[in-house]
Design a protein around this nucleic acid. Structure first.
Length: 277
DNA sequence: AACGATCCCTGTTGGC
DNA sequence: TGCCAACAGGGATCGT
């Protein structure tokens, strides 16, 4: 499921194809993909004929400048979304939901089996009133110091893992990388956020950039179902390097004891009960 | 305000 | 073998 390293990998892959290009035609094959567009028909109107500017990202949201009205093309991959770059008219994967054609003869396809992803073009006003405006700092480019975050954690009873997944607290971590961060920091995800010591909070914030950098270095994590692929069709290689996620019963890479799986607020969570306290 | 539960979706998996 | 419930989960929304 695309998290920060996967979305950043997608951003980097799309950049050379989209940046400075002009959109000639868009096709939306599944209306659910436009459920966040204030007026669904506005999507094509705002995209077609527009020139693409910079490709940005906050957390798991791709934010792309489009047109000369200050509009933002928003893409979210949900849990099964991916982007594919191809030539016009080449065979499409099943579950192709949105197609963006450019003047240069390339097209970008959003493929999303479960349709948890979405696309939209927001005006500056719509963006300002959207959830994107309420996202926390980006975990990769705007990671705050541990001290300030410790203040926000004081008194909180929520499980630290749930807080790490809260995009208003910190934008970009998902279920895989939250587990990896907690393992790296030696903290159990079930711990109430307010119970963490200063060194534990420091360890978490020291670990976040390391975990994200490794994920990025490997082009992200493609699970066995290959729901996520790079825009050029390759699989991300980070699965082989995960410490805990998806490794139930396998030996901890650090101490050898079995990785345990449990639910935290409905999310599958993996940890080493020896290395994490 | 904080926090947990529920829902959306479909391909895969496991149990009987 | 065949069927079907359970499962996967990011984010919106609702209830407590």
């Amino acid at each position: 499921m695309p998290e920060l390293p996967e979305v950043e990998t997608i951003r980097r892959g799309l950049q050379p194809v989209l940046s400075a290009g002009t959109v000639t035609e868009v096709e939306v094959r599944h209306p659910r993909m436009l459920r966040r567009q204030p007026v669904a028909s506005d999507f094509a109107d705002r995209m077609e004929g527009s020139t693409i500017g910079k490709l940005g990202r906050i957390g798991k949201f791709l934010l792309i400048e489009v047109g000369d009205q200050g509009n933002t093309w928003v893409l979210h991959m949900g849990m099964s979304g991916r982007m594919e770059i191809a030539g016009h008219g080449t065979p499409e994967p099943v579950h192709t939901r949105v197609v963006i054609r450019t003047e240069a003869g390339q097209e970008v396809r959003m493929v999303d089996t479960r349709t948890f992803g979405f696309v939209a073009v927001y005006t500056p006003e719509e963006l300002a009133s959207s959830t994107i405006a309420r996202l926390g700092p980006d975990a990769w480019t705007e990671l705050p110091p541990a001290s300030g975050s410790a203040d926000k954690m004081a008194g909180r009873r929520v499980a630290i893992k749930s807080l790490l997944l809260d995009q208003r607290f910190l934008a970009g971590l998902g279920n895989i990388y939250a587990d990896e961060v907690l393992f790296g920091a030696g903290v159990q995800g079930t711990r109430p956020a307010g119970s963490l010591t200063t060194p534990e909070i420091q360890a978490i914030f020291n670990t976040i950039p390391k975990v994200l950098a490794e994920g990025l270095r490997h082009g992200g994590t493609s699970l066995d179902d290959l729901a996520y692929l790079l825009p050029d069709g390759r699989a991300g290689q980070h699965l082989d390097y995960l410490s805990v996620y998806g490794r139930e019963g396998k030996p901890c890479r650090r101490c050898g004891s079995g990785i345990v799986r449990e639910k935290i607020n409905g999310r599958s969570s993996y940890s080493c009960v020896t290395c994490q306290t």
